[in-house]
Design a protein around this nucleic acid. Sequence first.
DNA 1: GTTTGTGCAAATCATTTGCACCGCG
DNA 2: CGCGGTGCAAATGATTTGCACAAAC
Lengths: 157, 157
Amino acid sequence: MIPPDDTKSEMEAFEAYLKEKNLKITSQRMLVAQKIFSTHSHFTAEGLLDEFKDQRDLISKATIYRIISIMVEAGLLQEHDFGKDYKYYEHIIGHEHHDHIICVQCGRIVEFMDKNIEDLQKQAAESKGFQITGHSLNIYGSCNNISVCEFNPANKK
Amino acid sequence: MIPPDDTKSEMEAFEAYLKEKNLKITSQRMLVAQKIFSTHSHFTAEGLLDEFKDQRDLISKATIYRIISIMVEAGLLQEHDFGKDYKYYEHIIGHEHHDHIICVQCGRIVEFMDKNIEDLQKQAAESKGFQITGHSLNIYGSCNNISVCEFNPANKK
DNA sequence: GTTTGTGCAAATCATTTGCACCGCG
DNA sequence: CGCGGTGCAAATGATTTGCACAAAC
């Protein structure tokens, strides 16, 4: 389906990290990383697992979670909390920093980035005596084309 | 400890909501609401439960969760996700809208509010075709007085 | 060959729920 | 009374972990 496009440099970064940490390069790690780097959207652990359902028994749920954890640790994957009881992830390389708008009706996730907001956040934190290490800004709202939204489960197939 | 200060109007709002929804006014609901309205900080379900540990068996864990749920539904309590695997809450009446800065070292939570950020968020969402229903902005950083921070577990007693 | 990884099933942990009994209205 | 509320213990669901076997180096 998705061609193993420009994931080379990302795969190399991952392998470099594994070597640096004396972790082994296994087929599962390579397959999962390949899949993640070629997915240009937000995904969940469960969703990632499903991607391997066809090649049944290829990669277990525990391993998926363990690999995700390593990649987050490596700084290659960002974890997001969008108010659900499971986490979302997206790979970082090649993606500029951005925040998210989540449609409360259909679940669609749109990215945006506003330099002014970033600057004001920095100011706000510093004025309270904090040094920023990160932030999470999620805007919830309704996208105005629910009836046609391809992400709306109600509109599936 | 905390005097049952200015919680009258808030208790009235809660009772009004219960009546409106044909829900009953029970001693548990009144006690929990009273405790919540007189707590001017962020708390967790578990922490709230602890507040009743002395009057042992007075209120069960299940009831705490059920009452919190009603109060969130009533719009009297706001739910927050600060990246932990449990939720934080704070009561709304008498509290202007604000966002949060969380110290990654000691867990201290500081509130702030920046009208410019709010406006820019609205603009950003609208430019993507969304109508905002809410947002969550959490800034993570380190407060620069860890060694004396009263909220730092390491500094307890 | 060791050490680290994987799969499986069982364990966690916050939160939710089924059910029998209890108390508000 | 009658229905919603409560407590308890068991269920849930995402994520984690212990352990025996396998694969990487």
